[in-house]
């Protein structure tokens, strides 16, 4: 177990180095001189030269890369030129709103997805099964930003029962969380359906039935429990996708999280913020993947990652 953790952590460090390098590469290849972007169109050439020297942008590329890596290790991504604050703390400040959104979405997706999957998987081929399949395909296909706008149209404009944008009350959380949860709900539902349908053919389900347990007890006590492990995995592995979805959803609902900050920073070429935010998200996704791997191997004694791979 310890060996496995160490190995995964080493790969994790490698991945984070690679991620930092990818970010460095994109920002350096991008057209436009960072110093003149930061100073705006009114700056004269002397000011630009001064800032270029201060940022170290006149040094050879490898020197810039090495000093950048040094900064990355200290999580120092410089300042946001627009907000005038240190980049990483600014990103971290906005992270709690994103975390809140993702937590609510995951809860919705798991509860609704498990219920739908259980209903469909209990009787494969039934009307319920087909309806759930159709709903899942639709939920996975709708563009989230459009679904968000349609929900605003219905619940904020027509019915006037929920706020359309911003944060502050639990009511504000409902629409963005539901929007973000919908495609994920479909994933959980499809997965649970397949697993439950497969489990229901197992011998121990027949045994449970022949003991005289009700169908409900068989489903909840036996079939559901064995279908939970893959769900745990998919929840962990889906955190990256959920983060990506949050970037879009936060913009639709003006939710004050990391996602809306990133799009803002990208549009304004605020590279300090862009680098800090992308690096942080890559780190979070990596940690989730690591934890998922470990939890997975603990949940299912048949899986021993250290031996197998």
């Amino acid at each position: 177990m310890i060996r496995l953790i160490v190995k995964r952590l080493l790969i994790g460090v490698l991945v984070m180095w690679g991620a930092a390098s990818v970010i460095f590469l994109i920002v350096r290849v991008a057209p436009g001189d960072p110093a003149s972007i930061m100073l705006g169109p009114d700056a004269d050439s002397e000011q630009i030269a001064d800032l270029t020297a201060r940022l170290g942008l006149d040094k050879p590329m490898y020197v810039q890369y090495l000093s950048y890596l040094g900064d990355v290790v200290r999580l120092d991504f410089g300042d946001s030129y627009r907000l005038g604050t240190a980049a990483m703390p600014t990103v971290l400040e906005r992270l709690s709103a994103t975390a809140e959104l993702m937590l609510a979405s995951t809860a919705i997706a798991v509860i609704v997805g498990l219920t739908l999957g259980l209903l469909a998987g209990a009787r494969p081929g039934s009307i319920t099964d087909r309806v759930v399949s159709a709903i899942s395909i639709a939920l996975q296909s709708f563009p989230t930003f459009w679904v968000g706008i349609m929900l605003i149209l219905i619940f904020a404009q027509a019915l006037r029962i929920l706020p359309s944008a911003g944060a502050g009350s639990p009511l504000h959380l409902i629409l963005p969380a539901v929007t973000l949860a919908l495609p994920f709900t479909a994933v959980v539902a499809r997965l649970t359906r397949t697993n439950v349908a497969e489990t229901m053919r197992e011998a121990y389900i027949q045994t449970a039935r022949s003991k005289g347990l009700s169908e409900r007890q068989v489903l909840l006590g036996h079939a559901l429990r064995n279908s939970l492990i893959p769900v745990v995995t998919v929840v962990g592995l889906h955190m990256g996708g959920l983060m990506g979805g949050a970037v879009v959803v936060e913009n639709v609902f003006a939710w004050p999280g990391t996602g809306s900050l990133i799009v803002d920073a990208v549009s304004n070429r605020d590279y300090g913020l862009v680098q800090a935010a992308t690096f942080l998200i890559a780190g979070i996704v990596m940690v989730f993947n690591l934890v998922t791997d470990l939890v997975y191997s603990q949940l299912d004694p048949r899986i021993r990652l250290d031996g197998a791979s």
Binding site: M16, G240, G241, M243, G244, V247, I281
Partner: peptide, 9 residues
């Protein structure tokens, strides 16, 4: 490394 970033990001 590439999968460490959400694709859309």
């Amino acid at each position: 490394i590439l999968l460490a970033f959400p694709a859309i990001l």
